[in-house]
Design a binder for these strands. Structure first.
Lengths: 230, 230
DNA sequence: CGATATAAAATCCTATCGGATATATTATTG
DNA sequence: CAATAATATATCCGATAGGATTTTATATCG
């Protein structure tokens, strides 16, 4: 089972696209872009009119989003976007990352294929801040790549359950919805580089430590925006 | 957000029951009881006839089960129960448990309320093998209590994300579907007692170690049944 | 007898409809 | 004027019907 449920079938048989899948992606994009604000209500009928499909695929997509914790459902009331993380949830998220991701980095250093490492390097290259760009869309792009980076490391660890558990957190979604105004990407690129170097050197201990440092610094970069909540 | 999505609303307002929820529980029970075998196809129309409800709530329940990884969906083909764990997945499951549950036990020793500890003791008492009982239903009962026990410890750790990540694995479902013929409950009861004692003594180090030992022994008890797969 | 092509059945996927409930608005009353 | 009650609207929940696709069964042919 893949991380995002969008893995390709090995056989080349092309199946017609599922409408529910596109609806899922559409809603997901609206959550990422903050078009649907935290806590905002999500009306099925509105989506019917907006997307031009019937209720069935929309409800199917919303059920999946609900199971993933991205939207909430109240019986006979409707769906609504998950509220922003409070301080407590933020701490919990990084606590959990700290349990899984350094381990994943260490495993990746031992098991990752050379091709996958090359993939990692390529991706890191694309994350470099490109001089002049709209800061907001730049951070959006960075968040996307950053998510892929961490997912690749988790995938390299070879434990699909760990990879899935991390993917299900939708870390980049929640963080972006908190910090869309932020920027701070150059520091993270450096830290990513150190992680890649350790993995490339097949140094598990160094990879684990580099990931640990990266997550700690990431938390320090972001925590200022959430101090409001107790 | 609760672990199973079945938490009660704090307010006493009674909402009419959701049909989709009962359908979910019905299918879940059929998975636990192996009435739907691993990999077995799940026909929506059959469920319509069997449960006497329309397709809508059934598809809603199946979507949630799909998001939780308990059933698979193939476009234009239908739903099917998740296949049995193979050796690799079994190893991954215990690897992940080893990352999260000892940590949860240590946190529980520090943060769990006395009332919750009492709850833990009560539950452990109910898990004692009760002399004469049908071995199979005895193990079914044990699996249920065991799941609650570990969930309570995770809850006591105070990190809902860790608790949810563990709950989403549906450990007891997958293990039961592998080892429904097994029994081995008395040993686990002893190990549970040691975990409780450490938590009760507020000894985080001992609780972490006791949980670690318990998971390792649990793995050793079950691994024989999965050696077939490479 | 085996393989292929055709036909039939089962199933899923989407769309539409009616009933039930919660929410918002308005009107009434102390 | 504030608070309550009644109404109106919007929305969800569940049921049903039709179209599309896959799968299975059957028949035909080499």
């Amino acid at each position: 089972m893949g991380a995002n449920g969008q893995e390709q079938q090995g056989t080349g048989i092309k199946r017609p696209p599922r409408l529910g899948e596109e609806v899922y992606n559409a809603i997901y994009a609206q959550l990422m872009s903050l078009k649907i604000p935290p806590g905002g209500r999500i009306s099925v009928d509105n989506l019917v009119r907006e997307l031009g499909v019937s209720q069935t695929p929309i409800r199917e997509a919303l059920s999946r989003l609900e199971a993933q914790g991205l939207v909430l459902k109240t019986h006979l009331v409707g769906y609504s976007a998950a509220s922003q993380m409070d301080r407590k949830r933020f701490e919990q998220l990084y606590e959990l990352r700290m349990l899984l991701e350094p381990y994943a980095a260490a495993q990746a250093a031992q098991h990752m294929s050379d091709a996958a490492v090359a993939n990692l390097k390529r991706l890191a290259g694309e994350m470099e801040p490109t001089g002049k760009e709209d800061p907001r869309s730049a951070y959006s792009r960075f968040a996307q790549r950053d998510s892929e980076f961490h997912d690749l490391v988790a995938q390299g660890a070879g434990n699909e359950l760990v990879q899935d558990s991390l993917a299900r957190l939708h870390i980049h979604v929640h963080l972006f919805r908190l910090f869309y105004h932020s920027l701070a990407t150059s520091e993270a690129s450096i830290e990513h580089g150190e992680i890649i170097a350790a993995i490339d050197a097949r140094n598990a201990v160094a990879a684990e430590k580099a990931m640990r440092v990266h997550i700690e610094k990431s938390k320090a970069r972001f925590i200022h925006a959430v101090i409001s909540a107790d």
